[in-house]
Amino acid sequence: MINIFKIVSWLEGLSYILLLFVAVPIKYLQNDPSYVKMLGMPHGLLFVGYIVLAIMLKYELNWSGKTFGIVSVLSILPFGTFFVGKYLK
């Protein structure tokens, strides 16, 4: 399950970066919200999947509160989820 989590964390990070640095600027600079609508739902689903998998792994791998906290905080930082795999090694 850890490999699935690493893949989801990478995809979630990519969707977050695209949303923040591509879709949102287009929305406000060109007055075109279509990219936010297109990328928002996949990002939301990946974020929920990331959190659910993190909770499952917390109990499966007996993560400490600190480890779970760091993994959780990395989910809200831009580029943070790209470091989850390295952190968990």
Score class of each variant (00 low, 15 high):
27 K>T: 07
4 I>G: 10
60 E>H: 08
83 F>T: 15
5 F>P: 04
4 I>S: 05
35 Y>M: 05
60 E>K: 12
69 G>M: 02
19 L>C: 04
73 V>E: 09
35 Y>A: 00
31 N>D: 10
71 V>S: 00
4 I>E: 12
57 L>V: 03
74 L>H: 05
82 F>N: 08
6 K>D: 10
38 M>A: 13
49 G>Q: 01
44 G>M: 03
14 L>G: 09
3 N>R: 13
62 N>G: 10
41 M>H: 11
62 N>R: 09
77 L>D: 07
4 I>L: 14
44 G>T: 08
64 S>D: 10
34 S>P: 04
7 I>T: 13
62 N>E: 15
70 I>M: 08
65 G>H: 06
69 G>A: 07
68 F>T: 01
73 V>L: 13
33 P>I: 11
87 Y>R: 14
81 T>E: 13
40 G>R: 05
2 I>N: 14
63 W>D: 06
23 A>H: 06
22 V>K: 02
64 S>T: 08
69 G>W: 09
9 S>E: 02
30 Q>C: 04
81 T>S: 11
20 L>G: 05
55 I>K: 00
44 G>S: 00
72 S>M: 13
3 N>W: 12
53 L>M: 12
46 L>S: 06
21 F>S: 07
37 K>N: 10
35 Y>W: 12
66 K>Y: 03
79 F>S: 06
17 I>D: 13
41 M>W: 15
4 I>H: 01
55 I>S: 01
60 E>T: 04
75 S>H: 07
59 Y>R: 11
10 W>A: 15
40 G>V: 08
32 D>E: 08
30 Q>V: 04
43 H>S: 02
22 V>H: 07
12 E>I: 08
74 L>E: 12
61 L>W: 02
32 D>G: 07
52 V>Y: 08
26 I>M: 07
27 K>S: 10
58 K>H: 12
48 V>C: 00
69 G>P: 11
52 V>C: 03
76 I>M: 11
33 P>H: 05
15 S>C: 01
14 L>D: 13
3 N>F: 02
85 G>H: 07
26 I>N: 08
16 Y>K: 09
8 V>D: 09
